[in-house]
Design a protein around this nucleic acid. Structure first.
Lengths: 153, 153
DNA sequence: AGCTAATAGTTGCAATACCAACCAATTTAG
DNA sequence: CTAAATTGGTTGGTATTGCAACTATTAGCT
């Protein structure tokens, strides 16, 4: 990590935000290729399906807060997934603004195929770490995320 | 970190690629706002300027490999920076396909303003870590990046 | 030299992202 | 009870992205 705060030159390749971005892009693009090649699903679409696998029958808004997908993007992604019959949607009885979304049977079967692939990929990634390092890294990520959140204006 | 590779449900919020993506977005969007508000410069543009601050008189192609910015995006960003007179460009004498890019005087003064802000931001981010944790986190990022790179098809 | 391949950079186009405006249903406050 | 504010979701406009095709120049091979 860079240490000299008053340096007059920025070493981009050691600058934390840059490094995180590069790392994240690399890690995500590898899975993205898998999802895309085998299932023609984007990362965004997969995230929606993933949340629905975990929490069936939630609203678009709940998906949005859980995945941090912006609501216009979510709306269009949901349309695509509906068109491809990977998810189903109906109006909520109690509040007709809301709708309730869930994986369709097809969607569930795709989900069931992707989940193990995802875990396998994560496992392959983490193979470069010892058990202890995994735990450390995980904790540090959480810690930094919390902190970054608190820096928000 | 998720441990059970055979789980039938994916916990998205504990899935490493997702967590890295969220963290990176958060961390980058905070700096992006600073660059944008104070200097009307995007992250991409800043990265280009940052590399030029470190390595003056390099070609677009060299910038591309150093920043991992795709060359079409780079080309357009360079145009914008030229138009705003933040950088200068001339043809390389030895190879007239290449051009040689550097910060202009204005660009350098903007650079000189942004660098301390960036370091300050990084410092603020890292305040949630002890010295030891910083070193660990940094090492783990490098380690994971190397490994992810090696998983490439 | 002369032809082919490779490289540096630009541009076109389709997909995606983001913001703001919008519609419809519901909640709140007077 | 009703007007205003809020909420869930969609849509429009615009900017950004990413791939591929293209131009121009240089390198390599025979």
């Amino acid at each position: 990590m860079s240490t000299d705060t008053n340096a007059s030159i920025l070493k981009l390749e050691r600058f934390l935000p840059y490094r995180l971005s590069i790392l994240s892009n690399k890690v995500s693009s590898l899975v993205a290729d898998i999802y895309k090649d085998k299932f023609a699903i984007s990362i965004t679409e997969w995230r929606i399906m993933a949340v629905l696998g975990e929490y069936p029958d939630i609203s678009a808004d709940e998906i949005s807060t859980k995945t941090q997908i912006e609501k216009s993007i979510l709306s269009r992604s949901v349309s695509r997934l509906l068109k491809r019959k990977l998810i189903e949607r109906e109006l909520a009885e109690d509040d007709r603004r809301r709708s309730v979304i869930r994986l369709s049977a097809t969607g569930k079967s795709v989900y069931d195929e992707i989940v193990p692939l995802s875990y396998e990929y994560e496992r392959a990634l983490l193979q470069c770490f010892s058990q202890q390092e995994q735990a450390q890294f995980s904790a540090l990520i959480d810690q930094l995320y919390e902190h970054a959140n608190s820096l928000q204006v």
